[in-house]
Design a protein around this nucleic acid. Structure first.
Lengths: 225, 225
DNA sequence: CCTACCGATCGGTAGG
DNA sequence: CCTACCGATCGGTAGG
């Protein structure tokens, strides 16, 4: 997928093909005018592809270290052309972040169905969260940390998006028969912080993700009385 | 301390003073030639001041988001002039990071003297670590996380510096009469990860840092048998 | 420590 | 989606 050479002139005699890998893609929505102000969708295919590419890069390098040109290159087009698909770098990031949270929430809720034991529920949620954090491929990008590299105005939006997501864990912790000495709020925050920063501390080793999730519950499990 | 206006000509008729705040600093080491290749010290005062300013900025914004011009401005000089004191942005960061770790280690070890109960020792270490992480002022900067915004070559150096620091906690955990089910390695990593990301999750509120440290120990305390 | 730069790169735009 | 730019900013250097 990576593209290092650049095409020269668009209508010259020696124009190299842009997407060398697969079959030449037929143009979708060929005569659509640039929807510069409203949200651009319609040719969801290409756009979604770009979102995934951008998500991966943001996850790897953080917001600031990922340039619009990096994203464009991986997508097989030039920097300027990206702006047919996105409004701005910030808007792109916000959208990705939001989609990632939604996808993560869906995955976790999916793991929860049919389980009733509160500690088991917490454990599967933790495990799923770890899997999400440590899988750099999909749109469920593992960078929900690292807000520091994000511009302040964007940061506020992200934090709000996140608060919604954290409700899942709020409920999970609420249902725990937890030792009365423990502050449930802090408890949840600490647990989430651990999970969110997983790609900062995880090392491939003897312990599987299942083992790690079990260990985390072992640590965090303090029964009432 | 913040400086927004810039001096015009150095020997013109209308030269504004640069350091408007305190008394005009007398030049130390006035005729020293630029030590461009070797390490610059000698006028440790000014240099130390610059290190602290840079530390604060790096802690607030991360490596990439902090420009050499930001640092220079806060220090009351121009970007180019900084290079009389530092070799490069990367070298500056590495030095700060190292000094921060050393200072942090010293503070923690200091809290440990005279204490023998292993859980109490762990708790005071946690508390001190929290204080360090949440104090943006001093050279013990709270950015030991956030490696993602740091260039790869620098990252390797930082990780190595950190490994040394973590030995303190390795020993602390070693001495714990810990439940045999728990993996001491993971246990230490999780605890450190929590402490290191404190400025990501801490919110001013009902709980003091002492309370939080106590809660953390409450969570992590699992006695053998 | 300043002046006066450098080449590189950034996010973004006009116009097709 | 490309060409051809823009102004801003970056880390860093020469020479004083």
């Amino acid at each position: 997928m990576k593209r290092t050479t650049r095409p020269s002139t668009p209508s010259g005699s020696s124009r190299p093909t842009r997407r060398t890998g697969g079959p030449e893609q037929t143009r979708i929505v060929p005569d659509a005018e640039k929807p510069s102000v409203p949200v651009q969708d319609g040719q969801g295919d290409r756009r979604h592809e770009i979102l995934e590419i951008a998500a991966e890069l943001f996850a790897e390098r953080g917001y600031r270290a990922t340039s619009i040109r990096d994203i464009a290159e991986r997508a097989g087009l030039l920097a300027g052309s990206l702006y047919y698909h996105i409004r701005s770098k910030e808007a792109l990031f916000v959208e990705i972040h939001n989609k990632a949270l939604e996808a993560a929430a869906k995955r976790i809720r999916n793991e929860l169905v049919g389980r009733t034991d509160p500690w088991e529920r917490l454990q599967v949620a933790c495990l799923e969260m770890l899997k999400i954090q440590l899988n750099p491929g999909s749109l469920t990008l593992p960078l929900m940390n690292n807000l520091r590299s994000v511009p302040l105005n964007v940061r506020d939006i992200l934090i709000q998006q996140r608060d919604d997501f954290e409700k899942i864990f709020r409920d999970l912790v609420m249902d725990l028969p937890l030792d009365g000495q423990l502050d449930k709020n802090l408890y949840r925050i600490l647990l989430l912080s651990l999970l969110n920063s997983a790609d900062g501390w995880f090392r491939e080793g003897r312990l599987s993700l299942e083992d790690i999730a079990a260990q985390i519950i072992l640590i965090f499990r303090h029964e009432k009385n």
